[in-house]
C-alpha cells in the first residue's frame, strides 16, 4: 500500500529470514579483490537489493551505479556469478542456493571503483555515428513493418552488457578498432531506416569493424531486452557488406545510379 504499507518491516512479510553470502569485488584500477558480506534476505530480493543493503548497513562507501531499479535505464550492469546481468533484475533465489554470490564490475571497461566502471568510451563511439539524415524528398510515411524492424534495435537501454561480454572488447581489448554490438545495432537501425539518406556501409565495414565479429552470439545471449543483436542486426549488416564488397554478381545486377 502506498502510504501505510511502506512501514511494514521487510522481515515481517513472511517471517522467514535467511542469509546469503555475497562476494563483492571491491577496489579500483590499481588493486582489488572479492570481499565477503552476509546479507539477510527478504522474499523476492534481487542482487541490487542485497548490494544496497550492504551499502546501507556494512560498507557505506561501496560504489555502485543504479537508478530506475526497474530494468529500464540500464545503469546497474554487473557480472553476477560470472555472467553479465542487470542487478535489479537478478533474483537471489534464482541463483544456486548454499553458494556465495559473486558480484563483479563489468570486465570490458576500466573500473572506477568497486562495481562502477568507466563506460565513457561508449559515448565516444556513439558520437562517431552520423545522426539520422532524412532524404530531402522524404514523405514521412513509414510502414508498421519498417517501424517494427527498427524498433527492435531501438529498444536498447544501453546497459552495455553486450559490449562487456563481446570477446573482441572483453578479451582482445580492441576498443580502437571495433564499435561493439551496441553500436552495430544503432548503425543497423539507421542503415535500415527507409528515410535515411546516408550510405553507412563504408563506416560499418571500416571503422566500426564489423568483420571482426565472429558471430558467437554472446551479445544476444546477455541482452536484457531480448534484442536479436546477431541475427537481426549484425548478420544482415554483414550481408550488406558482402553485397558491396564480395559479390560481383550482385553489384552487376544492382548497379545504383550515383
Amino acid at each position: 500500500m502506498s502510504t501505510d504499507g511502506a512501514q511494514t518491516p521487510i522481515a515481517d512479510q513472511t517471517g522467514e529470514a535467511t542469509t546469503r553470502t555475497l562476494h563483492i569485488w571491491r577496489g579500483d584500477l590499481t588493486d582489488g579483490g572479492l570481499v565477503e558480506f552476509e546479507v539477510e534476505t527478504a522474499p523476492g530480493m534481487v542482487v541490487l537489493d542485497a548490494v544496497l543493503e550492504v551499502q546501507r548497513s556494512q560498507a557505506p562507501d561501496l560504489a555502485v551505479r543504479w537508478n530506475c531499479k526497474a530494468a529500464k535505464c540500464g545503469s546497474c550492469s554487473a557480472e553476477v556469478n560470472g555472467r553479465p546481468s542487470l542487478m535489479c533484475k537478478t533474483r537471489l533465489d534464482h541463483l544456486p542456493e548454499g553458494e556465495p554470490i559473486t558480484v563483479e564490475p563489468l570486465h570490458a571497461f576500466p573500473v572506477i571503483r568497486d562495481l562502477v566502471t568507466d563506460v565513457s568510451w561508449n559515448y565516444e563511439v556513439n558520437k562517431k555515428i552520423a545522426p539520422f539524415t532524412p532524404k530531402p524528398d522524404a514523405d514521412w510515411l513509414i510502414g508498421q513493418e519498417d517501424a517494427d524492424r527498427m524498433s527492435e534495435f531501438r529498444k536498447c537501454i544501453e546497459c552495455f552488457m553486450c559490449q562487456d561480454v563481446c570477446h573482441i572488447l572483453r578479451n582482445h581489448r580492441m576498443h580502437d578498432r571495433y564499435f561493439g554490438p551496441r553500436f552495430l545495432i544503432r548503425l543497423a537501425s539507421l542503415e535500415m531506416h527507409p528515410l535515411d539518406d546516408l550510405d553507412r556501409i563504408d563506416q560499418i565495414s571500416g571503422e566500426a569493424g564489423i568483420a571482426l565479429c565472429n558471430i558467437t552470439k554472446c551479445c544476444t545471449e546477455v541482452c536484457p531486452e531480448g534484442i536479436h543483436i546477431t541475427d537481426n542486426a549484425i548478420i544482415p549488416l554483414k550481408e550488406r557488406v558482402v553485397d558491396r564488397r564480395f559479390d560481383p554478381l550482385f553489384r552487376l545486377l544492382h548497379r545504383r545510379p550515383r
Binding site: 500500500m1 502506498s2 504499507g5 511502506a6 511494514t8 521487510i10 512479510q13 527478504a42 522474499p43 523476492g44 530480493m45 534481487v46 541490487l48 537489493d49 531499479k69 526497474a70
Partner: peptide
C-alpha cells in the same frame, strides 16, 4: 499524483509501475 497501480510485493520492487 499517486498512480493507482504499482507493485506491492516483493518489498524490493514496491512501487514499481
Amino acid at each position: 499524483q499517486f498512480h493507482p497501480t504499482g507493485m506491492v510485493w516483493p518489498p524490493g520492487v514496491a512501487g514499481l509501475l
